[in-house]
């Protein structure tokens, strides 16, 4: 789980071009959207593709992402439970 969380942080920083951040800046419980990292709806779509590409999880409705992308912690748990690769 810790390894997955680290991997997720690295990927989020890379995929979303958050070049000023390091994985140490992102806490497991930080809100990714809104007041936390300040991600937006386009980032959510980027993360949906990441889920599909890296973990074989397909979301068809972007609104499903709202809960899943709450924090790195929540996302890691969801991936662990649903991954197909």
């Amino acid at each position: 789980m810790e390894a997955l969380k680290k991997e997720l942080k690295e990927n989020i920083i890379e995929v979303l071009n958050l070049e000023d951040l390091t994985i140490e800046d992102v806490n497991d419980d930080d809100a990714l959207f809104g007041d936390g990292l300040g991600l937006d709806s386009i980032d959510a779509l980027e993360l949906i593709v990441m889920l599909d590409k890296d973990y074989g999880i397909k979301l068809t409705d972007p609104s499903e992402g709202r809960e899943i992308f709450k924090s790195v912690e929540v996302l890691a748990t969801y991936i662990t439970e649903n991954r197909t690769k």
């Binding site: 995929v15 386009i42 779509l45 980027e46 593709v49 599909d52 590409k53």
Partner: peptide
């Protein structure tokens, strides 16, 4: 496949 929206928008 596996396309993301950022560069499109």
């Amino acid at each position: 496949q596996f396309l993301t929206p950022t560069s499109f928008i």
